[in-house]
Computed example of a mutant assay.
Amino acid sequence: MTTARRVLVIGGGSAGNSVTILLRRAGLTVDLIEAKPDWNATTGSGITVQGNALRVLRELGVWEQVEASCFPFGSLGITDLGGTLLHVFEDIKTGGEDLPATVGMQRPELQQILIDAVRASGATVRLGTTAENLEQDADGVSVRFSDGTNGRYDLVIGADGLNSATRAAIGITAEPEPTGQAIWRTPAPRPADVTRTDLTFGGPAYTAGYCPTSETTLYAYVVEACRSRDAVPPESYADEMRRLADHYGGVWPEIAKHITDPAKINYTWYHRLLVEGSWHRGRIVLIGDAVHCCPPSLAQGAAMSLEDALVLAELLTSGRDWDDELFHAYYERRIPRVRTVVDASVQLGQWQLDAVHGDMSGLIGRSMTFLKALP
C-alpha cells in the first residue's frame, strides 16, 4: 500500500478547520489556505448547533471550550404574533444522552475555537491565499497559489464553501440554486426570558425567531421571500429588519430596540445544493458547503460539514489506498444523511412559500431521529 502524507486543505471554515485538525492528529503534513485575511474570525452573529455536531466537536477535542462558551437548551417553543407560547417541542438528542440536544453560540466564538485548535495542531496556515491552478496526475496534485508560489500534494481537499472555486476547477458543474427565501440575522443582548429558540410563523415574514448564544447574547432572525439583491441598500439593513421585527410581540420589542447598526445585520438568500454521483475527481475531494447546502430550517448545515470532515479523515487514516474506491466510500457514507437534511430543509421552506400546512413537526422529528445514528 502507498500511504500519501501531504495534504492541502482549501478553505478555513468549519469543514476545512476540522479535517485539518483530524489529519494532523494522525501525523499527516497539512497546509491550510484561506482566502480571507482575517480567517472569518469576526464574521456572523450566531449559530445553532445540534447534538450530532457537538459529537464531532468532542472528537476534535474542543468540546470543553465550546461548552464554556455556548448556551445549551433542549426544547423549541412556538409562539403567536403577540409572543404567547402555543407549544413546546422537546429536541431530540442527536449526539447522544451525554451531550446537550442543542446549543447556541456566537459564530465568531466557535470559529476562534477551531482556529486555535488548527494552530495548536501544527498545520501550516496561509491566510489571504487562494489556489490559482490545480494540475493533477496519478500520483498527486501540483498547485500554483495566488502569491506566485507552488506546492505538490498527495491530496487536495476543497472546503471552500458554497461558491467553491475548487468545485468548478475539477469540472463539477452543479451550482447552488436560490430556494425563494432569504434571512435577516443580527446579534443582540439576551433578555432573561430567552432560554431556548422560539419561533413565530406568519405576520409580515414567514418566520421570526431567536436563539440564545451565551449568558448575555442571542441572535435574532426573520425569514421572508427573496428580494432583488439591490432592493434594499446595506445602509438601510437595520431599518428594514427592525420594520419586520416590530410586528412581533413577546421579547421582540426588547430585541428590536437593539437593531440599530446596519453593519451588524446580515442579509442572505437561502440556497440549495446537492452534488450527486461523486464528490471527487482524482486526488481532489470536496467537503462541506462545496458539495451540499440548504436552508437552516433544521440547523444542520454546520453539522453536516463537521461530519464530512470526520468521515473523510477516518477513511484517509484507515490504512487504505487513497484511490477512487476510498473516495466513493466517503460519498456513499455521506449522501444518505446529507440528502435527508437538504430535502427536508428545502421542503419546510417550500411549504411556507406555497402556503401549505405540511407536517412540519413530523418531518423534523423523522429527520432528527435518523441523524441520531453515527455518521
Rank of each mutant, 00 (worst) to 15 (best):
Pro37Val: 01
Pro37Leu: 03
Asp38Ala: 02
Asp38Ser: 07
Asp38Trp: 02
Trp39Met: 08
Asn40Ser: 06
Asn40Cys: 03
Thr42Asn: 12
Thr42Leu: 10
Ser45Asp: 15
Ser45Pro: 00
Ser45Val: 09
Ser45Arg: 08
Gly46Tyr: 06
Thr48Val: 12
Thr48Ala: 14
Val49Tyr: 15
Val49Arg: 13
Gln50Tyr: 04
Gln50Asp: 13
Gln50Trp: 10
Gly51Cys: 08
Asn52Glu: 13
Asn52Ser: 13
Ala53Lys: 04
Ala53Gly: 13
Leu54Thr: 11
Arg55Gln: 05
Val56Thr: 13
Val56Cys: 10
Leu57Ala: 06
Leu57Gln: 10
Arg58Ser: 06
Arg58Val: 04
Arg58Asn: 04
Leu60Glu: 08
Val62His: 11
Glu64Ala: 08
Gln65Ala: 08
Gln65Leu: 04
Gln65Tyr: 04
Val66Gln: 05
Val66Thr: 06
Val66Phe: 00
Glu67Lys: 13
Ala68Cys: 03
Ala68Val: 04
Ser69Met: 07
Ser69Trp: 00
Cys70Gly: 09
Cys70Asn: 13
Cys70Trp: 08
Phe71Ile: 06
Phe71Met: 10
Phe71His: 12
Phe71Gln: 12
Phe71Leu: 07
Phe73His: 11
Gly74Ala: 06
Gly74Pro: 00
Leu76Ala: 09
Leu76Cys: 04
Gly77Leu: 02
Ile78Met: 09
Ile78Asn: 10
Ile78Trp: 13
Asp80Lys: 02
Asp80Leu: 01
Asp80Glu: 04
Leu81Ala: 15
Leu81Met: 05
Gly82Asp: 15
Gly82His: 11
Thr84Arg: 05
Leu85Ser: 12
Leu85Gln: 14
Leu86Val: 06
Leu86Gln: 15
Leu86Cys: 03
Leu86Asn: 07
Phe89Trp: 07
Phe89Asn: 10
Phe89Tyr: 05
Glu90Cys: 02
Glu90Met: 04
Glu90Ala: 10
Glu90Val: 03
Glu90Gln: 13
Ile92His: 08
Thr94Arg: 09
Thr94Val: 08
Thr94Cys: 06
Gly95Glu: 14
Gly95Ile: 11
Gly95Thr: 10
Gly96Trp: 07
Glu97Val: 03
Glu97Tyr: 00
Glu97Thr: 08
Glu97Asp: 15
Asp98Lys: 00
Asp98Phe: 06
Leu99Ile: 03
Leu99Thr: 09
Pro100Met: 06
Ala101Arg: 01
Thr102Asn: 12
Thr102Ile: 08
Thr102Arg: 14
Val103Ala: 08
Gly104Val: 01
Gly104His: 08
Met105Gln: 14
Met105Phe: 14
Gln106Ala: 08
Gln106Pro: 00
Gln106Tyr: 00
Arg107Asp: 12
Arg107Met: 07
Arg107Phe: 08
Pro108Arg: 06
Pro108Cys: 12
Glu109Lys: 02
Glu109Phe: 00
Leu110Ile: 07
Leu110Thr: 01
Gln111Thr: 05
Gln112Cys: 03
Ile113Ala: 05
Asp116Arg: 04
Ala117Arg: 07
Ala117Cys: 05
Arg119Phe: 06
